[in-house]
């Protein structure tokens, strides 16, 4: 082993990669909003910014769950199905009647979380790869939703959700306050709690976390349950937003939920990333989406751009990955 002076020279950098990435993503969002004025005068106005933020709030909440799953090195492909499940159960079980809304909504979230936990059980105990297990859960849930509603969900939104999505307070929509609170909560949970720290340890190196005394098996269920609950909640928000549910209401959210996390600086291999970065990624993606619609590009182009962004972000983040591999080879050499 070389002397300490030579090998410990790197020290703490003032700005680590995560911070830089977060700043870049937020910066890009602002630049985009400003630039969008050139495309259409309606863009970039205060009300337009608020609209973008409302649309971004769906993605922010979804990508918190997806982010936790990616943090432990997994991938959740069941998000669209759980959005639909949350939405359909809300309109059919509660609906406009508001019957028992105060315990029904939490109960629906609990059901969603349970579905997520089932995915987790398949991944941990049946050793099914995460993307396959969540894909299987997804198709089962979608099928149940289809069968349950016979193809056409009925019912409207409970008034509480209408209030959440439509009401304003001090010139700002209520949902934005809610999202800000959620961001604070998510950021603290992921980066400054024992749970978040353990999840990060699990994602960094499952084996080392196990040996350090972390109960990895049960812990691994948590992100899947949280992600499913977040998706279910977004389903409820969408019900409030459009006053109804459809079977395809979640379809367009799967790729953005992954893209937001990856753009936000999390490693797809797990073990790194902050929720603040993910929030930046979600806002950037939503801004971009709004611009694409304004230019009049079709759904196809939008998808291509999203795919390109995911690959581009992965390539940019790869530098870190390569140093990681370099270190690993070094240890093998020792």
């Amino acid at each position: 082993m070389p002397s300490e002076a030579s090998s410990d020279r790197r020290g703490r950098q003032k700005l680590d990669r995560e911070t830089v990435n977060t700043l870049v993503v937020f910066g890009l969002s602002i630049v985009l909003i400003v630039c969008s004025r050139f495309i259409s005068p309606a863009l970039g106005s205060w009300s337009q910014v608020l609209t973008v933020l409302i649309l971004a709030s769906f993605l922010i909440i979804l990508s918190f769950g997806q982010g936790l799953v990616i943090l432990i090195g997994g991938l959740d492909l069941s998000i669209p199905a759980l959005i639909t499940l949350g939405g359909v159960l809300t309109t059919t079980w509660v609906g406009t009647s508001d019957a028992g809304v105060w315990y029904m909504l939490p109960a629906i979230l609990a059901i969603c979380a349970l579905v997520g936990a089932v995915s987790g059980i398949g991944i941990v105990w049946l050793k099914v790869p995460p993307f396959i297990m969540t894909m299987a859960t997804s198709i089962v849930v979608a099928s149940v939703a289809l069968g349950y509603t016979s193809g056409t969900p009925r019912g409207g939104s409970p008034s509480a959700l209408l209030w959440l999505m439509k009401a304003w307070f001090l010139g700002v929509p209520v949902v934005i306050y809610f999202t800000l609170a959620f961001i604070l909560f998510g950021w603290l949970l992921q980066n400054f709690t024992a749970l978040g720290r353990r999840l990060r340890a699990l994602g960094t190196n499952r084996n080392a976390a196990l040996i350090a005394g972390v109960g990895v098996n049960r812990l691994e269920l948590v992100p899947y349950a949280v992600s499913a609950a977040c998706a279910g909640f977004v389903g409820m928000m969408l019900v409030g937003y459009s006053n109804g549910a459809t079977l395809r209401m979640g379809d367009s959210y799967m790729l953005p939920s992954i893209a937001a996390v990856v753009i936000g600086g999390s490693s797809i291999l797990g073990g790194s990333g902050t929720f603040i970065g993910t929030v930046g990624g979600a806002i950037l993606l939503t801004t971009l989406g709004t611009m694409i619609s304004a230019i009049g590009l079709s759904e196809g182009w939008r998808t291509i751009i999203e795919g390109g962004i995911i690959v581009g972000a992965l390539l940019v983040l790869r530098g870190e990955f390569l140093t990681h591999i370099g270190n690993r080879m070094l240890t093998r050499g020792k």
Partner: peptide, 9 residues
């Protein structure tokens, strides 16, 4: 879908 999901797992 239910059938396919279970068969997959």
């Amino acid at each position: 879908g239910i059938f396919q999901g279970f068969v997959l797992v």
